[in-house]
């Protein structure tokens, strides 16, 4: 399936949950989905006979600056060997995205990482803890406005 077909299929099925799409860009084409509808769209893409996107290649958090965060889903089908990129945009004030952990187990650790690094909360994730940083770390290090703390548990951080 080409990205255009993905777009048509998703807009006809989900309507207003598909916010925008950029299919003719320089690089990877992508479709933007409403954050709270993400699990539904993901499950549909995985189970639909035409798409069968059974693998989540990558899930990345992105800081788009100006108080906006993004989650990027790179999907792939091992049956049809086609790829599609989904995106969900949230604000720093309300960084909630539906978890796709139940759809693809890959998302479990990737969502934890996005939570760890960007503070994006994945609703419905069974075990949303920090993964790379220590459990008692404060702040979300990959945000662009992140300031490295002076001390961590009494230890000096910048050396």
């Amino acid at each position: 399936m080409i990205p255009q077909e993905f777009n048509d299929l998703l807009t006809s099925t989900f309507g207003e949950a598909i916010l925008e799409s950029k299919l003719d860009g320089v690089f990877d084409p992508f479709i933007v989905v409403a954050p709270d509808r993400m699990p539904e769209v993901a499950r549909f893409l995985r189970d639909n006979e035409k798409t069968l996107c059974d693998a989540l290649m990558c899930l990345s958090g992105v800081d788009l600056t100006k108080g906006k965060l993004g989650v990027v889903y790179h999907l792939h089908s091992t049956k049809f060997n086609h790829k599609i990129v989904l995106k969900a945009f949230v604000t720093v004030e309300h960084p909630h995205v539906g978890s796709v952990e139940a759809v693809w187990k890959t998302a479990n650790w990737h969502e934890r990482e996005a939570f760890d690094m960007f503070g994006i909360v994945f609703d419905g994730h069974p075990d949303l803890r920090r993964i790379l940083m220590p459990d008692d770390w404060e702040g979300y290090p990959l945000r662009k406005d992140y300031q490295v703390p002076e001390f961590y548990n009494g230890m000096k951080v910048p050396y």
Partner: peptide, 27 residues
């Protein structure tokens, strides 16, 4: 996998790595 976001400047805006070991270990 490398997910690279360029913002038109000389340095990358975001480099996300999809490390195979990370994903395999989660299983």
């Amino acid at each position: 996998g490398y997910y690279i976001v360029a913002d038109g400047t000389a340095s990358p805006a975001r480099v996300k790595v999809r490390p195979p070991c990370f994903v395999n270990l989660s299983a």
